Amino acid sequence: MQRGELSLLVRARQPAPRTPVALQGRGALRDPPGQAVPRDLRQLGAAPSPDAGVPRIRPADRHHVQRHREGRTGGEDGEGHRDEGRRGAEEIRLERRSVRLHLTAYGFLAPALVVLLVFRLWPIVEAFRVSLTDLNITSGVQHPIGAANYVRAVTTDESFRESLVVTFEYVLLRVPVQTVLGLALALLVQRPGRVVALVRGALFLPVVTSLVIASAIWSQIYHPTNGLLNSILGSVGVAPQFFLGTVSQALPAITAVTVWKEVGFTIIIFLAGLHAIPPEFYDAARTDGAEGWQLFRHITLPLLRRTMAFVVVVTTIFSFQVYTPIYIMTKGGPVDSTKVIVYYMWERAFAFLEAGYASALAMMFLVLVLAVAAVQLWLTRSGVEY
């Protein structure tokens, strides 16, 4: 091979000269593709070493590259940690707010719960405990006797069974009358107006009147010689009636007093139920030709079924608890014709000083009332929604 050819071959095998990074213009400070150029090389404009295709990095510059790489990954990790921190702080804030709301709600409920526990639930528990003893109120002496009081009430106490019969008679008299009368009056006063508002107030006035005072006033109204009612009857030729002294008239007379006293409450409940019925139902029925009794029978009554169930159950419970008018007006007479179960329990506890036995009667009466209320709710259940 000649000398000139050998020179050409050597030149061909030599790598092509690289353009310095500093001379590449605006993109000179960026790393070449797939290579990491140290900061000092970028400043000097030197090209990376061609050996193995990787630039040589001096030991003094390695920490710059390491910090550069850690800065990229650390920035991403830092953003993730900050996002998780923000989410955690938001969850903690919402949890604390929920706790504060719950504490506020329980704070508002606390007075009512205290009254319920102290004056309702605890007396029931204590009455059950006393019912298992022979407690005497005056001496305070008591001895455990088990279920002897319950056995006595069921097997040997005729007065207890008679008082139950009188109580059921009173309930059967009062509940239908008060329910029907309350619904009828609610239908009359459901429309707005000044006169109607006055009538509503007059009907509700007895509800806020003391039952003791009302019973005393009605005792005078029922008086056989000087009573207002007998005076009215005498003016039309009817002989004076001894309402509270006749076995057949005493219980209906007391029922009339309690109905007069409580019918205003029933009216308010029925008014709420009537106003909750959408008027579109009546408009559609009138369009189809329904009137008067048809509207009441096919729209009002079905949609008032739940309201009526509430009225019947509440009125029944209140009727079972009747005591004040009996005590004020008849003392259970004449001939025990008005001696209801509550009055009989009071008589056993405070007249005969048998607190243990009276407590047993009270527990049995509680179970009876709960059973009657459950049956009424089942019978008056409704699937009508509107």
Rank of each mutant, 00 (worst) to 15 (best):
A60C: 01
D61I: 01
R62D: 07
H64V: 11
H64I: 07
V65Y: 15
R67F: 09
H68F: 07
R69L: 08
G71Y: 12
R72V: 15
T73C: 05
T73R: 15
T73M: 05
E76H: 09
E76A: 09
E79L: 14
H81R: 14
R82T: 13
R82E: 13
D83Y: 09
D83N: 07
E84T: 09
E84N: 11
G85K: 11
G85L: 12
R86C: 02
R86G: 01
R87F: 07
A89W: 03
A89L: 05
E90H: 07
E90C: 01
I92Y: 10
R93I: 01
L94G: 05
R97V: 04
R97I: 05
V99N: 06
R100K: 10
L101S: 14
L101Y: 15
T104W: 09
F108E: 08
F108Q: 06
F108V: 12
F108H: 08
L109V: 06
A110M: 02
P111M: 06
L113Q: 07
L113D: 02
V115F: 11
V115Q: 08
L117G: 13
L117E: 10
F119T: 14
R120D: 09
R120Y: 07
R120M: 04
W122A: 10
P123R: 09
P123A: 06
V125S: 07
E126F: 07
E126Q: 11
E126I: 05
F128Y: 06
R129Y: 03
R129F: 04
L132P: 13
T133W: 04
T133A: 10
D134N: 15
I137E: 12
I137N: 13
S139Q: 03
S139I: 01
Q142R: 14
P144Q: 15
G146L: 10
G146N: 12
A147N: 07
A148C: 02
A148Y: 09
A148V: 11
N149C: 09
Y150Q: 03
V151L: 15
V151K: 10
R152G: 02
R152L: 11
A153T: 13
A153R: 11
T155I: 08
T155S: 08
S159A: 10
E162A: 02
S163G: 03
L164W: 10
V165Y: 10
V165M: 07
V166D: 00
V166L: 00
F168A: 02
E169L: 04
Y170S: 02
Y170Q: 05
Y170V: 00
V171S: 03
L172R: 04
L173W: 13
L173K: 06
V175T: 00
V175Y: 00
P176G: 03
Q178E: 03
